[in-house]
Amino acid sequence: MRSIYLKELVQYFSSPFFFVLACVFVGVAGVFFYNAVAYANLLATQMSQYQAPGGISVSAVILRPLFMDMSLLVILLVPLISMRLYAEEKAAGTMELLFTYPVSDLKVLLGKYLAGFSVFVLILAFSGFLTALLAVATTPDWGVVLASYTGLILMGGTVLALGVFASSLTGNQTIAAAVTIGGVLVFWALGWFADTVSSGYLGAVLRELSLAGHLSRFFNGLITLKDVVFYLLFAVFFLAVTLRVLDFHRCRG
């Protein structure tokens, strides 16, 4: 598993891919960040004109919108990380090498997943300086920041599992990424359907399945067992199905 993990990392870093992705992610997040800061500044100025001290809820005005925007970036970022994991091996024919090396499919899968996960967390970590920068203007609620990042990481891990699954279905990385983004958007939007389609059991089930619905509490600074378990199970499900797909490919040759 370690060897697969290291190999995948070597591959991620063998091209400008990683830094280009990190640059785009952090750059766009930076724009969102500045936008939120500028708005907060406006609010604070307005308030100081009417009332005495310019106090605002930094969590509500800056952190929450920033993390909301970042969650959208994450669901676009992660499929780009996950797309190559299996599709590339299939296109190059190296699946066959992996199949004959003395490691189980599960270990290969976990090695790949963890490598993708590490790359994702690393890129996400680059954005950490944004909240650190806030300290020049105010005191952000570090608890909320911590919980939000926890939520983003869990959600990203889930999307990554979905992406690995999509990648195992095809030898074409672009298709893998497209399928992942499509799938994630469907799960993302389930909560909206739940509100309009039905309010019975179906609605409840749809809402519980919604990827976005489980994020909001993290962004409020609240980590609940339910949300954590949801993301973990979601990831486990897609990893298990991926294992099944790999088995199928092995039999089919």
Partner: peptide, 10 residues
Amino acid sequence: PEHTPLYPDM
């Protein structure tokens, strides 16, 4: 394997 599949980027 046939056609010697290798990791081109490594």
